[in-house]
Design a protein around this nucleic acid. Structure first.
Length: 426
DNA sequence: GTAGGGTTAG
């Protein structure tokens, strides 16, 4: 209850005062911590529990797996998976669902699929299917996601898609960029009980923006009830106009949104800034960046800085962009210098020193990416500095930079599944 | 006490 009120401290107080701690009370403490952004503390308590007499059950292990997901810790996650197997819970449906989502989250889509396929068909469960479909969507395997959605309908008697299913398939449709599939998805939504679902409609707006029809996206927005248009809905449409380079419409929408009494957030500004960037509206974007900080008190994140740098650099304001970067209150990340270098490539033939400076920062942050070296080489080439081009190649060889992809493998029930970066096979 | 989810970019 205290966790539900956001009071982790009180929750722990109650727990400490309990004399007979069973696995259920441990679980409520640990899952509460994991869900409230303190996965490390949750694992810490789990270690304490393991030193006591209490043994974990499958419900607790689900929370432990989620803790490692939160922490982005694949070795820890596979270790927890091993504990699940050792404890004999690897056939519990809830556990299999978590494991499927977990491996998908880590990009190990083949491992996720192997777990999914292991579940016997009578146990059809929407959440399991959702875990697999969204796993495909999030890993860019849109065709597989749509295909699995179509397969799901074979079980229509025992299982119907819910809003989460629809969100995942809409996300996949957005990646396919096909207006036919987008319209097919919208028709499906219209015929379902989720036609007025805010989440689903937001995803539809995003889908149409990415599939190339901002008019369709706007139509979805218009159909929504006014009171349902929250900041995420507005932001999705603003970003959509931005993607299409319609800065004027994005700005108008932004003003409409403010008039409607909806407060913009950091994502809204990102869409707005990106709209200005695509349209080359330097001063407009600059003033929105200022108002974001001073008028709304929103602290810019790396993406905002990268966007402003991109905005300035694309327009050829290289010196201004450089000064902006050096004045940043946080350490510029790869994306910031990357945007700058990109601008140099477009405009910097005369000022190769600035580009070299950007490249230097980039190599410092990520030495092993061949793409950066190629970019610098291209820049030298466009400036006719051929000896420098050759120099870049020498540096690459010296540092052992090549274009090979990474590979790792995962053990599921004694079977090794090999995973390659960018692997799309199944 | 547990499982899947909407807006950010090229």
């Amino acid at each position: 209850m205290y966790f539900a009120c956001g009071d982790a401290w009180r929750a722990r107080q109650v727990f400490e005062g309990m004399s007979d701690r069973d696995v259920v009370s441990w679980t409520s403490l640990i899952s509460g911590l994991v869900r409230n952004g303190c996965p490390l503390q949750g694992l810490h308590h789990f270690a304490s529990m393991m030193h006591s007499e209490v043994r974990p059950d499958f419900v607790l292990l689900v929370s432990i797996l989620k803790a490692y997901m939160e922490l982005d810790d694949l070795p820890g996650a596979t270790g927890a998976h091993a504990l699940v197997v050792k404890s004999g819970f690897d056939n519990e449906l809830d556990v299999v669902i978590t494991l499927t989502a977990m491996y998908a989250k880590f990009g190990c889509i083949l491992a996720a699929r192997a777990l999914f396929d292991k579940v016997p068909t009578p146990q059809v469960n929407v959440i399991l299917w959702n875990a697999m479909i969204s796993g495909y969507s999030k890993n860019g395997l849109a065709k597989e996601a749509v295909q699995l959605f179509k397969q799901m309908r074979k079980f229509a008697r025992s299982m119907t898609p819910d809003s989460v299913t629809l969100l995942s398939v809409i996300l996949a449709s957005a990646q396919l960029g096909s207006i036919e599939i987008a319209e097919w998805m919208e028709a499906y939504v219209q015929g379902s009980e989720y036609r007025d679902d805010v989440f689903v409609n937001t995803a539809l707006i995003d889908m149409y923006s990415k599939a190339g029809s901002i008019a369709h996206a706007h139509a979805v927005f218009e159909r929504m009830h006014v009171q349902e248009r929250d900041v995420v809905v507005w932001s999705a449409l603003i970003a959509g106009y931005g993607m299409h380079g319609h800065a004027k419409e994005a700005v108008t929408l932004f003003e409409d949104m403010k008039r409607a009494g909806v407060k913009p957030n950091d994502v809204t500004f990102l869409g707005l800034l990106s709209a200005c960037k695509h349209a080359g509206a330097v001063e407009k974007g600059w003033s929105y960046f200022q108002s974001m900080k001073h008028e709304y008190g929103i602290e810019p994140r790396h993406q905002h800085y990268a966007c402003v740098v991109d905005l300035l650099a694309r327009a050829g304001h290289l010196d201004r962009a450089y000064r902006f970067i050096t004045g940043m209150p946080i350490k510029p990340e790869l994306s910031v210098w990357g945007a700058f270098l990109n601008g140099c490539k477009m405009h910097g033939h005369s000022d190769i020193a600035l580009a070299e400076c950007a490249a230097q920062h980039i190599f410092e942050l990520q030495q092993s990416n061949a793409g950066h070296y190629v970019q610098l080489a291209n820049l030298y080439a466009s400036a006719g500095m051929w000896s420098h081009v050759a120099g870049v190649r020498v540096t690459m060889r010296e540092r052992g930079v090549s274009k090979e992809t990474g590979c790792s493998s995962i053990d599921i029930n004694g079977e090794m599944h090999s995973l390659h970066a960018g692997d799309h096979s199944s």
